[in-house]
Design a binder for these strands. Structure first.
Lengths: 156, 156
DNA sequence: TTCTAAATGTTAGAATTCGTACTAATATAT
DNA sequence: ATATATTAGTACGAATTCTAACATTTAGAA
C-alpha cells in the first residue's frame, strides 16, 4: 500500500500530458507570430499589469534570464513596454502598449475558445469536477509557496 | 458572470506554476548528470517498459524529434537500450539497462521524497483533496484524448 | 554609518526543444 | 495488387531555455 504522498508524486508526472492534451493544435489566428511564452506573458500582463519582470517569469515558469529574452521580443514587436519603478530602481514593470492591448484581447478570446472546444464534450458534472480540481491546485500552490517563503525567512 | 469553460481556461494557466512550486530546488543526488527530461523518461520506462519511443515522448510532452535527442543521451550514458520491434520494424522499444534500473530506483525514491517534503505540511484533508484533484485531471486527460482520437478517425 | 547579503535584471555560451523535411515501414483505399 | 496516406523515428538548422557570472540597487546587520 503506497502512501498518499507517493500517490501524489506519481500523479504529478501526468500533468504535462494534461496540459498538452488541452493545448494540442492550438494556433493563434493573428498576424503577428507569437510563441507560447509570449502569448501567455501577454495574457498575464493583461490580467495583472505593472508587475516587475520576475513576477511574470515565475508565472510562466521560466528562469528570469529566459524571461529577458521573451520580454525583449515582445518589446521589439511593440506589444509591451518596460517601465522603471521609482520606489525600487532595480525593478522594471511591464505594461501593454495600445497595440498589445488590442492583440491580447484577441489572444484571450481565442485561448478561451480553444479550451472550451477541447472540453465541450464533458458533462456538466465533469466540468464542475475539473474546475474544482484546478482550484485545489491553485490553493495548494499558494499554500506551498507561503510555507516556502516562511522557511526561507527563518533560515536567514 | 463567466462561463465555467472560461473559468477552466483561466485556471489552466496556473498549472505550470503549480508544477514549478512542487519541483523547486529538486536536485538529484546521483553521480550521473541528468536533466528533467532524462530523469522523467527513466521513471516512465521503469513504470512501463518496452513502449515505442513516441509513447514516451507524449508522456513527457516533447516532440518526437526532441525525444530522439533525449534517448540518444540516455543510451550514450548506458542507461537505456533501443530494441527493434519485430511486429513493426519502424518501432524501437525502450528498456532500462542493468545500470539504468539501479539508477532509476534511486531517482524514483528521491523524487517521491522531494514531493513528500513539499507537501509535508498539508493536512490529511488537503492531501486527499490534492490526490483527488490530480486523479480528476488524469481522467480528464484520458477522456479528451479518446475523444480526439475518435474525431481523427472519423475525419480520415 | 559601513559592511555584507540578497534581489532584479542582463549577458554570454551551452543545452534543450522545436519545426520541417526526410527515409523506411505499415495501413488503407481503390 | 497497386497506389496513396499514415506512422515511427531521425537529421538539421533555428528558436527557446538554461546556468553561471555580472552590475546595480536595496535590505539588513554590525
Amino acid at each position: 500500500m503506497k502512501s498518499i504522498e507517493t500517490n501524489i508524486a506519481e500523479l504529478m508526472s501526468m500533468l504535462p500530458m494534461f496540459i498538452d492534451a488541452l493545448l494540442e493544435d492550438y494556433e493563434l489566428g493573428i498576424d503577428i507570430k507569437l510563441n507560447h511564452s509570449e502569448s501567455t506573458t501577454l495574457m498575464f500582463i493583461k490580467k495583472h499589469s505593472g508587475d516587475p519582470m520576475t513576477e511574470y517569469s515565475k508565472k510562466i515558469a521560466i528562469s528570469k534570464a529566459s524571461f529577458t529574452y521573451v520580454a525583449d521580443k515582445l518589446e521589439k514587436k511593440g506589444l509591451i513596454q518596460r517601465i522603471p519603478v521609482n520606489e525600487d530602481r532595480r525593478k522594471h514593470a511591464l505594461i501593454l502598449t495600445e497595440k498589445g492591448e488590442m492583440l491580447t484581447k484577441k489572444i484571450i478570446a481565442e485561448h478561451n475558445q480553444h479550451i472550451a472546444n477541447k472540453i465541450a464534450h464533458l458533462s456538466q458534472d465533469q466540468l464542475k469536477d475539473l474546475k474544482n480540481a484546478l482550484e485545489i491546485l491553485v490553493k495548494t500552490t499558494d499554500f506551498i509557496k507561503e510555507r516556502t517563503d516562511t522557511i526561507e525567512r527563518n533560515e536567514s
